[in-house]
Design a protein around this nucleic acid. Structure first.
Length: 211
DNA sequence: ACAATGATAGTT
DNA sequence: ACTATCATTGTA
């Protein structure tokens, strides 16, 4: 299918994840994104390549989903075409990055919660001393590391936008992925719509909070 | 356990 | 206009 954007057709890049692949239920796309690459080209800065190690699905009819009560200024991108971003500000200080799933006007997305950076970019080298593998462990932290804010809300995942997705470079087996309940929500907290790479040290939290 | 910090959505 | 809430994080 053709991306509904006025973006010039890109050179043959078989690794690039396109909107059509995201046009499926978030509960299917979320585990499929584990092991895929998120790449960020900072404007006038470094190229940051990373592996997605933790995701959560937010679905139509899901009380925890921002789209649950309908379209608004904040969540408009969720109702847009798949394969685009949805970025929002949370707690007044952190941003969260999503991949919009399913067709226009559906209102579903996958929250990216953890990234493993392939290397530490220069602008983060000061923080490198502590725990480099934790720099993008958590939805707020990864947006800070990749300089993602609402300016990137609703853009197509594509090199031309400075942010894109690539397919898994190698197979990820089901037994290497853990499925648990989602973090930080009160509504529909029992739905097991969070996935993470078992072996990764860049997962925000390994176990779901009890009680 | 809790403060930081501001936009959002629902209520007067 | 007012206010409770919030898909978080770092520090105590």
């Amino acid at each position: 299918m053709i991306p509904p954007d006025p973006i010039s057709p890109d050179p043959i890049s078989p690794d690039l994840i396109l909107p059509d692949w995201c046009d499926r239920p978030s509960i299917t796309v979320a585990p499929d994104l584990i092991g895929c690459k998120l790449v960020r080209q900072l404007p006038g800065g470094p190229l940051i390549r990373s592996t997605i190690v933790e995701t959560e699905a937010y679905a139509p009819g899901d009380p925890a989903c921002h789209a649950y009560t309908g379209k608004s200024k904040r969540n408009a991108a969720m109702f847009g075409p798949p394969g685009h971003s949805y970025v929002y500000l949370i707690y007044g200080m952190y941003h969260c990055l999503n991949v919009v799933t399913e067709s226009v006007n559906t209102g579903s997305a996958v929250l990216i919660r953890g990234l493993e950076l392939e290397s530490i970019p220069p602008h983060l080298s000061a923080k490198q001393t502590a725990k480099p593998h934790r720099i993008a462990a958590g939805p707020g932290k990864l947006c800070r590391a990749l300089e993602i804010d609402r300016g990137l809300d609703g853009v197509l995942y594509h090199p031309a936008q400075g942010i894109w997705l690539e397919y898994r470079p190698k197979v990820v087996k089901a037994k290497d992925i853990v499925q648990t309940t989602r973090i930080g929500i009160t509504k529909a907290a029992d739905r097991p719509w969070r996935w993470y790479l078992k072996e990764s040290r860049s997962v925000s939290k390994k176990l779901t909070a009890k009680r």
